[in-house]
Design a protein around this nucleic acid. Structure first.
Lengths: 224, 224
DNA sequence: TCCCACAAAATTGCATTCATTTTTTGCAGA
DNA sequence: TCTGCAAAAAATGAATGCAATTTTGTGGGA
């Protein structure tokens, strides 16, 4: 689709998710119009959509502001992600093909290699790939879309459970992934569902701990 | 907020969810503008949002059409609802207050009364209320919003698992609700989560069976 | 009768314009 | 210097205008 609105929507979403605008900052219509080389109409349409996605707030007569995500909301978003992954795992157990499972297994072993070599970057890439593959294997379009949307919101909050700062958690996460693979191999849906939710919970806890240790701008000035 | 856009969005969403527009039908901008007494700009903004919510399709240069929901997608939506309720149940076990639980328990007994009296209408009202209370008890804003959105999409498809046509299912559903209340009472999160997902699965299956028995316009002409 | 080409009408996407509201600026008075 | 207020400037919300695309209607030819 070569719709101007859609392109602006995608680009603006990317722009915000990537954190190019400070939290709480005004989203300057005029400036963005110039940046994208369009008039206000399509930009405003995109803003309404982004607001419905929860990325920005729309204050009546006061324009759009990048949504400020507080501690509380991050916890809530993590829990929803956990619920969605739990669902994905359960559905994946019902539908996953042998080849798709083999691919996840391969990624798992590759990830283990990164773990042994203490290669954080490679580990994260595999980790993300595995979770994405599980969602893909669930083969449920609305689920995939919702998952992507929430992942974007969390990414905007710049919350990466940086294991480097919390090495104990790394081993724990690796063990959890062993359980994940095992449950998936046995196609134990309910079990995998439970493991995945707890996995996300632990990830959230690790992120929270890390945040408590070195608070970033995400928490500072939250009630400004 | 007295924003024209927001009011139009809400009204138009309601209008579509309630099924006032036939599936696959064109959404006539001009007509709706007159009906709502507004110009095209705020209406078009609302259309973009509704498209992002999955209620309508936006074809480039061809206007908006009410989204046609096929069998496949209904199954997918039911599964997501199941996943969301499963999550809500788990979170509710962690956070629910005694008074909130007591209210659900009361609704449960009231529902049981309707069941005994074969009062389908009262039964459904209580049933819905219980599920809503569980989501409320989860106390998670993004979850509540997502749940409401999916509920709307399913409602648009006019899928009510009409127990009247499938009396066997009624008893089964009632037993499942006994399990739900029991797990919630024991604050058994993982268990409740599992029961709720299976509960929705069974509801979906009942709906599908009923649909197979007497196919409505929702399935007829799906590939038109 | 059926089919296709072609022009008229309607519809869409986006830009521009206009009225209101908010925000900033400037200045008088304490 | 600081405060309060009024006017200017800017920004927002919505309507209108305009070019481009699609849809509809009609007539000619097979």
């Amino acid at each position: 689709m070569h719709s101007l609105h859609d392109e602006v929507l995608t680009r603006l979403r990317e722009f915000i998710v990537e954190g190019n605008l400070a939290a709480g900052a005004r989203v300057p219509e005029r400036l963005l119009c110039e940046r994208f080389g369009i008039s206000r109409t399509p930009l405003r349409e995109a803003l309404k959509v982004l607001a419905s996605e929860g990325l920005i707030d729309l204050l009546p007569n006061r324009g759009a502001r990048v949504r400020r995500i507080g501690e509380r909301e991050i916890v809530e978003l993590f829990d929803v992600m956990g619920g969605l992954e739990a669902l994905a795992g359960r559905l994946a157990c019902e539908r996953i093909t042998e080849t798709a499972f083999a691919e996840i297994e391969r990624l798992h072993h590759e990830m283990y290699g990164h773990y042994l070599r203490r290669d954080l970057h490679g580990y994260f890439a595999c980790n993300q790939a595995i979770h994405d593959r599980i969602v893909q294997a669930a083969d449920n379009a609305p689920l995939s879309a919702t998952y992507a949307s929430f992942a974007g919101r969390l990414r905007r909050a710049r919350y990466s459970a940086n294991l480097d700062a919390n090495r104990d958690r790394w081993g724990e996460a690796m063990r959890e992934h062993e359980e994940i693979l095992d449950a998936l191999r046995r196609r134990a849906g309910a079990e995998l569902s439970d493991i995945l939710f707890r996995h996300l919970r632990n990830k959230r806890r690790a992120a929270a701990d890390r945040e408590a240790a070195s608070p970033s701008e995400a928490t500072a000035g939250e009630n400004a």
